[in-house]
Simulated assay, not measured.
Amino acid sequence: MRETAEQTLLKHYQRLGAQEVSNKAADDVVTIADTESEIMLAEELAKILPEAAIVGEEAAHADPAIFERLSDKLCWIIDPLDGTNNYAAGKPPFGILLALAQGGETVAGWIYDPLSGRLCTAHRGQGAWVNGERVSSGGSGKTPPIAAISLVFADKAKRAALLEHIAPHYTLVDIPRCAAEQYPRIGLGRNDVSLFERTLAWDHAAGVLFLNEAGGKAARPDGSAYRVDRHLEPGLIGAATPRLFDEMAERLTRMPS
């Protein structure tokens, strides 16, 4: 991840030409750095586990049939440049997200910040680590709790309901538009809870595992586990503690649909 970041992301950072950035969808861009990073990561990961499928964000965008590999016995999941909109604008945060899934369940995850060198890692049942030191999630300790609520992919009615019925119970902070930053913010006590509408595997597989292994709770609003092979389903809560998760889940249950 470090080598890839140095040779692709940092090489192009704040040096992108107009022809090196294109629109993948409304409010969603892709850069030459995304493509180069994914190619390099895929090549190196294939050497580590040749038997594992590889699902990269850009490859799946080009060929949605690749999504079917998310339920394979072993599958690498790559977000070669998370926070591309930030990156293309020449500002942080952005990062690389990698996960290894087994039969649709994440068993290992890595979250790398190329600018700071922060590396968050988690293996199922083995805890969460930042730069080799074990971390425990306990929240900010603030009252009301600090929440980052993503409204980007919610429809108009749901946005209005969240702002009316959920927001007043929290101190709201801006979302970083980067899961590689949001999950560490929760696990390291900067934020207490976050809501996500879109839950694509490359954005969430590593972060969900990291937060759960740190002692927080990331799951669907009904409490069911996040699975990468069901990543097109909407709705996910990430919380610094199980209590904060339960409070948010209860409020969402009472929110008018």
Rank of each mutant, 00 (worst) to 15 (best):
M1N: 15
M1I: 11
R2S: 13
T4W: 03
T4F: 06
A5K: 10
Q7P: 00
Q7M: 07
Q7T: 09
L9G: 08
L10H: 09
H12I: 06
Y13S: 01
L16C: 10
A18M: 13
A18F: 10
A18W: 11
Q19Y: 14
E20Y: 09
N23D: 12
K24W: 09
V30T: 15
T31H: 06
D34M: 08
E38H: 07
E38Q: 08
E38T: 12
I39E: 13
M40C: 11
M40H: 09
L41I: 14
L41Q: 09
L41M: 12
L41R: 08
A42P: 14
E43P: 06
E43H: 10
L45S: 04
E51G: 01
I54G: 03
V55L: 04
V55Q: 03
V55S: 05
G56I: 04
A59P: 04
H61L: 05
I66N: 07
I66A: 04
F67Q: 09
S71D: 14
L74A: 06
C75P: 04
I77G: 02
I78V: 07
D79K: 03
P80E: 04
L81N: 04
D82Y: 05
D82H: 02
D82I: 07
Y87E: 02
A89C: 13
P92H: 10
F94E: 01
G95W: 02
L97E: 00
L98S: 03
L98E: 00
A99H: 01
G104D: 06
G104M: 05
G104N: 03
G104A: 08
G104I: 06
T106E: 01
G109I: 01
I111G: 01
I111C: 11
Y112W: 11
D113F: 02
L115Y: 15
G117V: 14
R118F: 13
L119S: 06
G125V: 03
G127C: 01
G127I: 00
W129R: 01
V130W: 01
G132P: 06
G132R: 05
S136L: 12
S136F: 10
S137Y: 12
S137H: 15
G141W: 12
P145L: 12
I149V: 10
L151V: 04
D155H: 15
K156M: 01
A157F: 04
I166N: 05
H169P: 08
H169D: 11
Y170N: 09
T171P: 00
L172C: 02
P176M: 07
C178S: 14
A180H: 05
Q182Y: 04
I186L: 15
I186H: 10
I186V: 13
G187A: 15
D192L: 10
E197M: 12
L200A: 09
W202C: 07
L211Y: 04
A214C: 02
G215L: 11
G215D: 14
G216R: 05
A218M: 07
D222S: 04
A225T: 12
A225S: 12
Y226S: 04
V228C: 08
R230A: 09
H231Q: 11
E233L: 15
G235I: 14
A239L: 02
T241P: 05
P242Y: 09
R243W: 14
E247L: 10
E247A: 07
E247M: 08
E247Y: 10
M248A: 13
A249F: 04
E250M: 11
L252P: 03
T253F: 06
R254L: 13
M255D: 13
M255Q: 13
S257M: 06
